[in-house]
Design a protein around this nucleic acid. Structure first.
Lengths: 345, 345
DNA sequence: CTGAAAGCGCTTACAG
DNA sequence: CTGAAAGCGCTTACAG
């Protein structure tokens, strides 16, 4: 098959600044000036350059630009555990909104909740010389970030603090929130409270369970551990809740320690006669409709605060890393306020 | 304040390959070979280089590497409208999983449902020389992508087809799905069906409304347009549904044409006496519990198919752009199957 | 207002 | 097994 038109259809390579300069009959430097908006170019020259750029469909190479001008990239990285969990993606949405107003672009990548992948993804972003880095960490080990930190890349840990690198972090007051919510359940008369928590590896799960322990111990329940169950995904949470309710000594209240677990628990309980009171950590769209009491907070705000912190650092604020603790609020709702039945099983 | 240690604490600049080579007493080329895993280096030399790299906390500059070696970046871009909508983020999750297996890294950025921002974000990714590009488009105009397309960057449009650029796309069979679901409602006896659709600018909304029109016309309802209402976010959908149900001639069934609208409609209907049948487009976590019939499909699969398409192109498959239409399935559930009440108002 | 030279930090040929 | 030279596509000084 022969092509008649010499290079009408085939455009093997991308036009560079040099091509534009050549076509416009100016130096490469002048072309650069025009296309990157620098002043001091005669209007007619500028027009020639712009025309040439358009004709050649020129698109600057950011890699080259950023490389030459040092690490003044406008890219900011966000490493998240799970793209399917709206809790994380809403944090990202909050951060993005604020960063955008400051001319920065947020790029999100996922660790898929794997510490090793988190490390790789984080390093890859750093190798791409992001201006700042946000991490919702799953790994417990972040010492490898210390050099980057020292080189001045602002890093903010979200939802869980950094362990072995001194970085800013934004977290919720997990422990107090769960302690107080548990106290409410106890005040309503509940003694058999089934807690469904995420894996012990997860910092927030540990904090929340500690809050539960605080309240149970204060109420004189020393064997609180027997009420703690684990689930990481919706399906497991559902199974755990079903088993609990079917077993002997079934709990009169179920306390789900994050949004995925709440989803599982709610689905397990649906349609059951004499359902238990249900509490959840994290608010969700159908909580009011379903009458679930929750520990509410705003993930978008979490992201916004993280972005603020990074912007502060970029603006030159120095000093010790800070840990910002955001308050949560308890939202009492219908069936979540159900007291235990009078007649025991 | 004077610093005693010369440069123990302050590390002004990043170590480069050149620094590593110097410390290891080899050429820069040899250092490069070791650190990028090329063969033909004596083990002892390699060790010296690795030690030097570690000592200097060397981290390669991907910008420089990618610039020199041409556009063989491992970065792939994904432009999404709204980070808060799990429908989109799950598509991204699906794409990411497959791409990762092929050594590619997915970076997600958001257009915030603004055509102008979509354009900027897309161009910025292209300037960063991503290997492939995924877009869930909000804009109707994509002619500016034609040159990039011609330069061989695979581009896949998801959920909505590209209009003025010949690119691959993956979409759902919106029209047929809604037509058949509407036919079911009609078969159940419903005549007053309140449809709540997204803005007319959105392609999927137009297709879905067309499906509704097909079914209504086939049933002899020529004034189907009076049953079509619009809402873009949860709050508006809720208000629209409330108004509809409170008004005269209230619908006996509500059909919500996407996940956000369903959320609003469900919350509006909650606790109402004699609630209407509810159908939704897009499945969701609480649909079974709430007894909502839905047009179900798997966003993760949508992403996976998009990734497959891009990988095919990267592998050199040529030919006309394809439009892949994925089937949906109707899931009938409790209250969604409610027939209209016998006694009219 | 415009341009020739040097260089950002790497890798690609090409020699030895 | 190792290295000196050139260059990826831009921008930063520095001249005129």
């Amino acid at each position: 098959m022969t092509l008649d038109a010499p290079d009408a259809t085939a455009r093997p390579s991308r036009a560079t600044l040099r091509d534009v300069a050549q076509l416009a009959e100016v130096s490469i430097k002048t072309a650069s000036r025009v296309l990157s908006g620098q002043p001091n170019v005669r209007e007619e020259t500028a027009r020639r350059v712009r025309d040439a750029a358009r004709a050649l469909r020129f698109r600057p190479n950011r890699l080259a630009r950023d490389l030459r001008s040092g690490a003044v990239s406008t890219a900011v990285g966000f490493v998240i555990g799970d793209l399917s969990n709206p809790f994380y993606t809403q944090i990202a949405a909050g951060a993005e909104r604020l960063l955008r107003e400051h001319g920065l672009e947020l790029f999100i990548a996922t660790s898929d909740e794997d510490p090793e992948r988190e490390r790789r993804v984080t390093l890859t972003m750093l190798e791409r010389r992001v201006r700042a880095l946000f991490v919702v960490p799953v790994a417990e080990e972040h010492a490898y970030l210390v050099p980057e930190q020292q080189l001045g890349t602002p890093m903010v840990f979200i939802d869980r603090p950094a362990v072995d690198v001194a970085a800013d972090s934004i977290v919720l007051d997990n422990r107090r929130a769960v302690r107080e919510a548990t106290e409410r359940l106890i005040a309503l008369g509940h003694r058999r409270i089934g807690l469904v928590a995420d894996r012990t590896q997860v910092w927030t799960a540990r904090e929340r369970v500690a809050g539960f322990a605080d309240a149970m111990r204060a109420a004189g329940t020393e064997d609180w551990q027997r009420w703690v169950h684990r689930a990481h995904d919706v399906a497991t949470a559902r199974a755990v809740a079903s088993d609990l309710l079917a077993g002997p000594d079934a709990p009169t209240a179920l306390f789900a320690l994050n949004n995925r677990i709440t989803a599982g628990v709610v689905n397990a309980v649906a349609g059951l006669p004499g359902p238990p009171a249900i509490l959840g950590f994290d608010d969700f769209e159908f909580a009011a409709t379903l009458g679930i009491s929750v520990i509410a907070h705003d993930p978008v705000d979490l992201g916004r605060r993280a972005a603020e912190t990074a912007l502060d650092r970029l603006a030159g604020r120095t000093g010790m890393p800070q840990q910002i603790v955001l308050p949560t609020r308890f939202v009492a709702r219908g069936s979540g306020e159900r007291p235990p039945p009078k007649a025991g099983p």
